[in-house]
Amino acid sequence: MAYDKFSKIVSPAVPLPIENVDTDQIIPARFLKAVERKGFGDNLFRDWRYDKSNQPIADFALNNPTYSGKILVGGKNFGSGSSREHAAWAVYDYGFRVVVSSFFADIFKGNALNNGLLPVVVSPEFLEKIFDGIEADPNAEFEVDLPSQTFTIKATGESESFEINSYKKHCLQNGLDDIDYLVSLKDEIAAFEK
C-alpha cells in the first residue's frame, strides 16, 4: 500500500500516558467491517473519544485543542492485542506519522512499519521526559530524524537514538513495501519449494 516517504518530522506531540493501549481501544471491532482501506481515522480511539451519544469527550487528548501534531506518544506496551492492521491504518489516517513509546507489541510494530508509520522506541526515562515536555508546553516541538535515527526534544536539545533495521529504514525512506520485493523473489521461492 502506498504511503508517504519518511525522512524528518518536526512537530508538537499528542500525549496518551496510558499503558497497554490495546488495538481494541485504537479501533473497536465494530469498525472493522469495511472492505477498503479508508476512513479509519474517524474512528481512531472511538470509545475514548466519543460518549454514547457520539459527543466528543472533552478531556481526551485527541479532543483537546491544546494538543496537535504528527507524533503520538503512548505509555508502555502500546498496540497490544488483536493483529488488526486497521489500528495502524487508523493512526496513520488520522494524521500521525510517528508513535513513540517505551515498548510496542510486536504485531502492531510490524503493521506500523508496513504502512509508513514509524514506531519509535525510547527508554522509559526518556518517555517521561517527553511527557513532561508536552505538559510544560503543549506546543513544544520534537524532531524525529529517520536518517540519523534520533528523537530530539527541541526545547532542551536532549535526544535519544532509536533502532530500526536497515531494510525497513530503506523501505520507509523510499515509500516501498515488502510485496514488490517478495514478488521479485518468485523464482527463488519456487526453487525453495522443491
Binding site: 492492521e85 508496513n114 513495501d177 510485496i179 517478495l182 514478488v183 521461492i189
Partner: peptide
C-alpha cells in the same frame, strides 16, 4: 498472527518478511 499487508504478501508469494 499477521497484519493485512502480510496477508497480501502470503497471497502474492507464500512468504512473509
Amino acid at each position: 498472527g499477521i497484519g493485512t499487508s502480510e496477508v497480501e504478501m502470503v497471497l502474492a508469494s507464500q512468504c512473509i518478511m
